[in-house]
Design a binder for these strands. Structure first.
Lengths: 226, 226
DNA sequence: TATATTTGTAACAATTTTGTAACCTGAATG
DNA sequence: CATTCAGGTTACAAAATTGTTACAAATATA
């Protein structure tokens, strides 16, 4: 029933390149969609892909810009390989800052392309699997970054989602404010510990009467449970 | 030198499933041990594993029961994934109350399994420095800062936990009030020595009839024992 | 750039934990 | 038999922790 063929989206403004990519990667067993522009790509549901192949030089919206949108606005961690004729050190750095997983300069051999695609899909595949963790009436859909309360999705911001997902996926486990800060905000970012309290208050409010499922054990931290 | 391969224990009453699990997870680089029953699992030293995969439906001792024993009697916080054909909401809740980290309904794809195993091991690995010390019917779980009395966690505040943990982990050793003050409150904080008496009275009350296991030797101090 | 949304902070209220003093008990002492 | 002393207990006060609100800063969006 489940089709586990990997889906790849290739975006390039040259029809020829798209054909070459599509033909060859399809032959390797991948399901390949193509777009002739970033705009066209953005109209699609990008969450279902396992890999993006992005040409850097696209019309008004460049491949870099598209990658940035994918990462930041759509919040997808799907791997990206940039295709480009430009090969300056500068471009490389920009690409990797946006979370590019690889970088392929045109002209490239199909053999090289498919090797990189395979390598990247192999190492990234596990996290692309939708993981639904359920506790009580709550379901965490990590692939789409959504949390459902009795089948209704909560309207959570990113930080709120991260915290609640952490709690639900570790129901019963107590997290101190610092645990939460390091897991959700990261270890470099410096914010007041009280930020955690305020964010949790916001989550509770959005959870309505279920808000009291986020418990606090004074002196220890917060946890999820009934 | 150090072998950092993660150790997984799979418990299932179907030989076939064990083989599939063992074969596939070994292929992913994990060290996999298998047991055909909960009883067999309980004869092993379970403290060395990084993850348990437990079938819910096992002979006399179910997977839930086994998980409960692992959590409460052995005081291990090792993550658990339940494998089961049963998929009712009821089962889910029971599983999460026991601290299941995930839940996988049979039949499951190996890909899905390995994704979840990887995800759980990644997030659980750093903090799993659980130290369980047992004395009498009491177990101290230093990782989660919990003390169990006959498998039931005591509702201790921070200071109360610190004192009781000190006593249990050094059962029989006598601590003067000043010993306790310097170990629990620290050397900078200045509080009355009688604070210790009051706090111990509070612990005793929360321990119920077991409260008399905290002894006092007049003129010397307090200690734990029967 | 203007506007909306998200995130961070500070201040204050509510709650929980901790500390103190006073009183009580019982054993040891004289 | 009164006195003293160590420890137990209680009630209340102080302090610490947590909850909440309003607003500022940062970020995203148009």
């Amino acid at each position: 029933m489940t089709n586990d063929r990997r889906r790849i989206l290739a975006v390039d403004d040259e029809e020829d390149i798209l054909e070459i990519l599509s033909f060859n990667l399809s032959g390797e067993g991948y399901k390949v969609d193509t777009c002739i522009s970033a705009e066209e790509a953005l109209r699609k549901d990008l969450s279902g892909y396992d890999l993006f192949l992005l040409d850097v030089m696209l019309g008004p919206i460049s491949g870099f810009k598209l990658a940035e949108k994918i990462r930041k606005e759509l919040a997808l961690t799907t791997p990206v390989i940039f295709l480009t004729a430009r090969d300056s050190e500068n471009d490389r750095i920009t690409g990797f800052n946006l979370g590019a997983d690889d970088y392929l300069a045109k002209p490239f051999s199909i053999r090289e392309l498919s090797a990189r695609v395979k390598a990247i899909l192999r190492r990234s595949s596990p996290e692309q699997v939708t993981m639904a963790t359920v506790a009580g009436d709550f379901t965490v859909d990590t692939a789409n970054k959504l949390i459902y309360s009795e089948s209704v999705p909560l309207e959570l911001t990113r930080k709120e989602y991260e915290i609640l997902a952490l709690f639900i996926c570790n129901a019963g486990k107590i997290f101190s404010r610092n645990d939460i800060l390091s897991k959700v905000w990261g270890d470099e970012v410096i914010v007041t510990v009280r930020t955690v309290d305020v964010t949790i208050a916001r989550i509770r409010k959005k959870m309505g009467e279920k808000g009291n499922m986020i418990k606090n054990k004074s002196g220890y931290g917060y946890y999820f449970g009934d």
